[in-house]
Simulated assay, not measured.
Amino acid sequence: MEKKGVFFDVDDTLYDHLSPFRQAVIAIVGDREGFPYEEAYHRMRYHSDMLSLEMGGAGAMESGSSTELMRRRRFELALAEFGIALSEEQASAMQAAYIGCQFNITMFEGAKELIERLVKAGYVVGLLTNGAENHQLRKIRAMELDHLIPSERQFVSGKIGWDKPDIRVFHHVNEVTGTRPENSVYIGDSWRNDVIGALEAGWSVIWFNHREASPESGEHTPNHTAVNYEQLAKLLL
């Protein structure tokens, strides 16, 4: 019998990634009435992806002055789009505040319970996330998922050498876990990295669109869309 795999993105899929962003912005420039934190967060994610690619991908992003520059620049570029000009010092302080609360993680309601049910039901359950290896693994440790998802099923692009949406990342996961694309489901929030990447690799995709964003293109269609873990559980189980 073919192994069935269910793989989850980490940031903004297992936990609310907006929370540390909002805290960091407020810490440096104050809480501005009517500021679109969610929209600004999406632009920060976009600039983070683009700058990372320019610098060689997540595998090159573990540490060093170039990494600090990228992390600072993503805040400068994102907030500039909303009329907030950050000095280098402010952007660096915002990044430091962001990192400072990034590992204080509360998973979405029902997330851990769904993973437990999938494991119990016999699925191959794993994680696939973009980012520097040590940085992402710290988040996974903070969520205390090791007893459910063994380390060999925790895939971080910085270690693999390719970033989502590169289909080689998804093929690597299939190869290591003994699963096949047609029996693999990916759950993620990013249209570009998760929906497009997994569909191009031949996987099924559930777009975890809890922020109710609009599709970024008409060329790809996720198999399903869910806005919370109750809906995800119904789709998967």
Rank of each mutant, 00 (worst) to 15 (best):
R32H: 12
R32Y: 11
R32T: 12
E33S: 13
G34M: 14
G34Q: 15
G34K: 13
G34F: 13
G34H: 13
F35A: 07
F35M: 10
F35R: 01
P36R: 13
P36V: 13
Y37K: 13
Y37A: 12
Y37T: 12
Y37D: 11
Y37W: 08
E38Y: 00
E38T: 09
E38I: 01
E39W: 04
E39R: 13
E39Y: 12
A40H: 11
A40W: 10
A40Y: 02
A40T: 09
A40C: 00
Y41P: 04
Y41W: 07
R43D: 14
R43V: 11
M44C: 09
M44H: 14
M44K: 15
M44S: 15
M44R: 14
R45Q: 10
R45N: 11
Y46E: 07
Y46T: 15
Y46H: 15
H47P: 06
H47D: 00
H47K: 08
S48G: 06
S48I: 06
S48C: 03
S48L: 11
D49Y: 10
D49R: 05
M50W: 06
M50I: 12
M50H: 05
M50T: 03
M50G: 06
L51T: 05
L51I: 11
L51V: 05
S52G: 01
S52P: 01
S52A: 01
S52W: 02
S52Q: 01
L53V: 08
L53C: 02
L53S: 12
L53M: 09
E54Y: 03
E54P: 03
M55F: 14
M55I: 12
M55R: 13
G56C: 10
G57M: 10
G57H: 02
G57R: 01
G57W: 00
G57I: 03
G57A: 05
A58E: 02
A58L: 00
A58T: 03
A58H: 07
G59Y: 14
G59M: 04
G59V: 09
G59F: 06
G59A: 00
G59Q: 10
A60S: 11
A60W: 05
A60T: 03
M61P: 00
M61N: 04
M61W: 07
E62V: 09
S63P: 01
S63T: 06
S63F: 07
S63K: 00
S63A: 05
G64E: 06
G64H: 10
G64R: 03
G64M: 14
G64F: 04
S65T: 01
S65M: 08
S65A: 08
S66R: 11
S66K: 12
S66F: 00
S66A: 15
T67N: 07
T67Q: 14
T67M: 09
E68A: 09
E68K: 03
E68R: 00
L69F: 06
L69H: 13
L69N: 08
L69R: 01
M70L: 06
M70W: 10
R71M: 14
R71L: 07
R71C: 06
R72Y: 02
R72F: 01
R72Q: 08
R72I: 02
R73S: 05
R73T: 08
R73A: 01
R73F: 02
R74P: 06
R74D: 02
R74M: 01
R74W: 00
R74G: 04
F75E: 05
F75T: 03
F75Y: 09
E76K: 15
E76Q: 12
E76D: 06
E76P: 02
